[in-house]
Amino acid sequence: MDNLPLLTVGVTLLACVLGVVGVHAYSSGTAQRQALVARMSQAGQLTALPGRRRRFTGIDRRLRTTRLGRRIEREIAATGLDLTPGEYVVYVVVALLGVYLTVGAVFAPFFGVLGAVVCVWGANAFLNWQRAKRTEAFINQLPEFTRVLANATQAGLALRTALAMAAEELDDPAGHELAVVADQLAVGQTLDDALGELADRLPSRELIVLVTTLILANRAGGQVVTSLRNLTQTLEERKETRREVTTMLSQIKVTALAVPLLGLGFLLMINTMSPGALDKMTGSVTGQFATLIAFGLYALGAFLIRRMSKIQV
């Protein structure tokens, strides 16, 4: 114990030395990496620096080896989000814990479990919503896409060249998706397979009609320019009709969202007026069962409202 001050000073000095060595090693490695990137760029072996730094790479590598990870990767690729499966899973787990703790603290622990289950469903619903949003944006660009194809084919260009030209001229998401198709054609994939994968990534009746038209024109020949001109006019009319239907059904969609929110508001009001009421209600099996039935009825009501308001144009 007499040498404790001296031992403390020695440990502190050792930690400082190790810290200086670590900082020097990090700065040296960073400088070497930058010099390597600069040499590769000058030699033409590296055209651009990589994108943003990826997080949770270890989790991502392990997750990609599983069936669930590959499924998540396919769904994320269809949405166009700049996420890896590892980042998505970590964010979902963090959100799940946050929802569980927040809802459990505001209402009751049993409601925290329900909130976590809803969070898991919401994570998958978010990907489906992003995919539907991207598909809708692509559908809105189809008239312009067919117009570019018609002009290019009328000028005597091949269909493959016309697709590559459309990929350069159109904005995302059509530009990105058509660039993928052009890259697949460049490495030897057939036009039928490349367009078929495009229709699988962004499923819609309009795109299926366009893909079928292009495939038949590529196989049998014919007046593809006339077909594309007529298809452009039809897509323009369908675009206006879809916009009108969406505007007319916006109030119904808000109602479907407001119905379950009103139920949560009533629960919060009850718990505020009588603190601990929700804990007592969910403290027994009967109360938990009744709560599940109530939430199930709210979800069924919202589903039926959305289902009845869904109109295929």
Rank of each mutant, 00 (worst) to 15 (best):
N3T: 13
P5L: 03
L6C: 07
T8D: 13
V9A: 15
T12H: 06
L14G: 09
A15F: 11
G19R: 06
V21A: 15
H24Q: 14
G29H: 08
G29L: 08
T30E: 15
R33W: 09
A35Y: 02
L36R: 12
V37E: 13
A38S: 11
R39H: 07
M40Q: 12
G44W: 01
G51V: 02
G51Q: 07
R52W: 08
R53Y: 08
T57D: 13
G58Q: 07
D60L: 03
R61F: 10
R62C: 12
R64F: 04
G69M: 04
R71W: 15
R71P: 05
A77I: 05
T79L: 00
T79H: 00
T79W: 00
L81N: 02
D82L: 06
T84S: 15
V90N: 02
Y91V: 10
Y91F: 12
V93E: 04
A95G: 07
A95D: 08
A95W: 08
A95N: 08
L97C: 10
G98Q: 03
L101W: 06
T102I: 12
T102A: 14
V103H: 01
A105F: 14
F107W: 06
F107G: 00
A108D: 10
A108R: 01
G112S: 05
G115Y: 01
C119L: 07
C119Q: 11
A123D: 01
A125M: 09
N128G: 14
W129F: 14
R131N: 03
T135D: 00
E136I: 02
I139H: 04
Q141K: 02
P143D: 03
E144R: 10
T146N: 04
T146C: 05
R147D: 11
V148N: 04
V148L: 11
A150G: 01
A152K: 02
T153V: 10
G156H: 07
A158H: 11
T161N: 14
A162H: 01
L163N: 01
M165E: 12
L170N: 03
D171F: 08
G175V: 03
L178S: 01
A179K: 10
V180M: 09
V180G: 02
A182D: 12
A182P: 04
T190H: 05
D192R: 14
A194M: 00
E197Q: 15
A199L: 02
D200E: 15
L202D: 01
R205N: 13
V209H: 10
V211G: 00
V211K: 04
T212M: 09
T212W: 04
L216H: 09
A217V: 00
N218D: 15
V224Q: 04
T226N: 13
T226I: 10
N230K: 13
Q233Y: 12
Q233N: 13
Q233T: 14
L235N: 03
E236T: 12
E240M: 13
E240I: 11
T241W: 13
R242K: 14
V245P: 02
T247H: 13
M248K: 11
M248H: 05
V254T: 13
A256C: 05
A258G: 03
A258E: 06
V259K: 01
V259P: 01
G263C: 02
L264R: 00
G265V: 06
N271H: 03
T272S: 11
A277D: 05
L278V: 00
L278C: 00
S284E: 07
Q288G: 04
L292V: 11
L292G: 07
I293L: 13
L300C: 12
A302K: 06
L304K: 13
L304N: 09
I305R: 05
R307W: 08
K310Q: 13
I311W: 08
